[in-house]
């Protein structure tokens, strides 16, 4: 079997030129501005799924809570939830076309499975929490707010990279 993915007919196809992928992403964002009147977002869809799941277990508690409660009886009836579902679909189609669907726990060569799961979970909790604090994530604040040149969104983006680089050194073994 040919080990070079570029030449293989069964292995994953190479990714798109990042600059062209960026233009594509920017055009999708522009289309969102011009049709919805708002930008792209991802974290709100996850948060609303969380609210919905919690609601299955303790409906009264969620309905009475201040933050989730404001989302009404059905938190999933929200445009960003639909956008998140679309993101999963679009990602799937692209990955299938590119033969890049590979069920695996992606981790560095020396990182154990449990360590990787723990890191992904802890990072997820932090990112999910932080997205609610800032009302958006890399997509909703960074990309969207950045393209709109909103001052606060650029602060978010800057702060994200500052703390990211500051912590990266301490967890460098994860990917070495």
């Amino acid at each position: 079997m040919n080990s070079d993915p570029n030449l293989s007919s069964t292995g994953p196809k190479p990714h798109l030129n990042p600059y062209l992928a960026g233009v594509l992403l920017g055009l999708v964002l522009l289309a969102s501005f011009l049709t919805l009147g708002v930008g792209l977002g991802a974290s709100a869809g996850i948060a609303r799924a969380g609210a919905s799941l919690q609601s299955c277990v303790m409906p009264r508690h969620v309905a009475d809570s201040v933050y989730f409660g404001a989302w009404g009886e059905d938190p999933l009836r929200y445009y960003l939830v639909f956008m998140f579902v679309g993101t999963l679909l679009g990602g799937s189609v692209s990955a299938i076309l590119g033969r890049r669907v590979q069920p695996q726990l992606e981790r560095g060569p020396t990182a154990s499975r449990s360590r990787r799961i723990l890191m992904a979970l802890a990072g997820g909790v932090l990112a999910g929490f932080a997205s609610r604090v800032a009302a958006g994530c890399t997509s909703g604040q960074g990309l969207t707010g950045g393209a709109m040149l909103a001052t606060g969104s650029l602060v978010f983006l800057g702060a994200m990279f500052v703390s990211g680089y500051a912590v990266a050194w301490f967890v460098r073994r994860q990917w070495q």
Binding site: L40, A42, S43, G45, I46, T87, M119, A120, L121, A122, G123, G124, V125, L126, A127, G128, F129, A130, S131, V133, A134, A135, C137, T138, S139, Q141, V155, F156, L157, G158, A159, M160, F161, V162, S163, G164, Y165, A166, V167, A168, V171, Q174, W175
Partner: peptide, 18 residues
């Protein structure tokens, strides 16, 4: 604050929501 926390989450998990 959200950005600072998010950056830590991003680097620990190497993922962001989208």
């Amino acid at each position: 604050v959200g950005g600072l926390l998010f950056g830590v989450g991003f680097v620990l998990s190497s993922w962001c929501p989208g």
